[in-house]
Structure formats: structure tokens, C-alpha cells
């Protein structure tokens, strides 16, 4: 038996198909989940994909955060279910306060779309065990609301507890404080990042790198060995 990984679709989600594909490429079963459905269909983990859910109205992720499916996701995440938020999914996770801080407009106000070098800072989360701590990877980055902010105390806490999971390398693309590209919760089951690992899982696509596949193989190993 393989693991069942849910991928949520909100109105305005863009990357649900690519995320489902990445889940399958890694060898797990992708289960589409709908924002209006509280039922998670007994999945073992959930990915919140990228896009512009609810048109980013109010704030990116602010309205999705109150959707029926998120009620169950929040409850299950607190009970230990692995959750990965990519781009808009990361924004949703900060709006739910499952992850601290918030996302704001890029400091230069431009939409960015490019390959981005990252350093994996924490290779012990549910989604990063197939990487080595300090490993450098390159995956696509595409957003306009990518500037991670939190107060100094929160930033110091994240650093001290090893909860900065990914950091931007070779220049900060959006003004994120302390070059933070992604973070994890205290228990390592909830991870969010702005760049898109699901777009870098097959050698045929993009730059030909498969640096993002590790997210999906990490979680599969964790679930199958559990």
C-alpha cells in the first residue's frame, strides 16, 4: 500500500494538477480535495498548492483560510498530520497561524518568475528528510506576495529552534526578512515555502533539474515507514 496525499483545490488555485503529478511521480497516490468539502477522504497528508485562491482578495490566503476544508486541515495538522503549503498554500498557512509571520507584497512590487537557488536549512521536517542540511537546490519561484515578515522576537525564535527550513541564496528576491524562503512549525509536520518544488520533479521540464522531488519522496517515506 502506498500513501494517500491530498491536494486541495480552491477557486483560483493554479498548481493543483502539477502538485498531484509530483505526488504521483514520487510514487504516492494523489487525492484531489475540494475547498467546500470538510472531508479529507482519509488522506495521510495534505498539500496546499500555489495559485491565487479567491483572487488574493483581502489578503493572499485570507479567505481560503476560512473554507470548510481548512477547518479539518487545521484540526488534523494540530494533531500531527503532515501539511505542506507551497506559495499561495504558504500564505494560507500563515493566515491560519499554523505557521507564524505573514506574507506581503514583494519589496520591489514586481511579479517574479525565475529559477531560485535555496539552501535547505532543516532536513528533519516531514517534507525534507530526503535532503541534507545545508544542501543547495534550485526550484522555480513565481509570485508577487512573497515577502516574509514577522516581528524580531518571532524571527529569533525561528532561528534558535531551527525552524527556518529554507533560505534564499544568491540574492534576496523579494525582501523577505533574514532571506527566509520557508519555515516549519515546532513539530516539523507543517511546512510552508514560497518557491515551487512541484515544478521541478521531472528532467524533461524546465531547467531539467529534479531538485523539488525530495519533498514528495520525503513525505512518502515517512508515511510508508510510519
Amino acid at each position: 500500500m502506498t500513501a494517500r496525499i491530498g491536494v486541495i483545490t480552491f477557486p483560483g488555485t493554479l498548481d493543483d494538477r502539477d502538485t498531484q503529478r509530483a505526488v504521483r511521480v514520487a510514487g504516492a497516490e494523489a487525492v484531489p480535495l475540494w475547498h467546500r468539502d470538510k472531508d479529507l477522504k482519509q488522506v495521510d497528508a495534505v498539500v496546499l498548492p500555489g495559485g491565487f485562491s479567491y483572487g488574493d482578495y483581502l489578503r493572499a490566503g485570507a479567505i481560503s483560510r476560512f473554507s470548510p476544508v481548512m477547518e479539518t486541515v487545521i484540526e488534523q495538522a494540530r494533531a500531527g498530520m503532515p501539511v505542506l503549503g507551497i506559495c499561495n498554500g504558504f500564505q494560507v498557512l500563515t493566515e491560519t497561524h499554523l505557521l507564524p509571520g505573514a506574507m506581503l507584497r514583494n519589496n520591489h512590487l514586481h511579479f517574479i518568475c525565475r529559477d531560485q537557488k535555496l539552501r535547505v536549512e532543516n532536513a528533519t521536517t516531514a517534507w525534507t528528510t530526503d535532503y541534507a542540511a545545508g544542501q543547495e537546490i534550485s526550484v522555480p519561484l513565481k509570485n508577487i506576495d512573497g515577502r516574509y515578515v514577522a516581528d524580531e522576537r518571532t524571527l529569533d525564535m525561528l532561528e534558535a529552534e531551527g525552524r527556518v527550513a529554507f533560505r534564499y541564496l544568491d540574492g534576496n528576491p523579494n525582501g523577505s526578512l533574514r532571506d527566509i524562503a520557508g519555515i516549519t512549525n515546532e513539530t516539523g509536520n507543517v511546512v510552508g515555502l514560497m518557491p515551487h518544488p512541484e515544478h521541478a520533479v521531472e528532467p524533461l521540464i524546465g531547467t531539467g533539474r529534479t531538485d523539488g522531488l525530495g519533498f514528495f519522496t520525503s513525505i512518502l517515506k515517512k508515511l510508508v515507514n510510519a
Binding site: 506581503l104 507584497r105 514583494n106 519589496n107 520591489h108 512590487l109 515577502r147 515578515v149 516581528d151 525582501g175
Partner: peptide
């Protein structure tokens, strides 16, 4: 309003 300590690039523009 954004908190005073939060950078507001739109306002700056």
C-alpha cells in the same frame, strides 16, 4: 493599516 514597523513599498511608490 500596516503596522508602523512594516515596510510599505506601495505607499513608497
Amino acid at each position: 493599516m500596516l503596522k508602523p514597523e512594516i515596510l510599505d513599498p506601495q505607499g513608497q511608490a
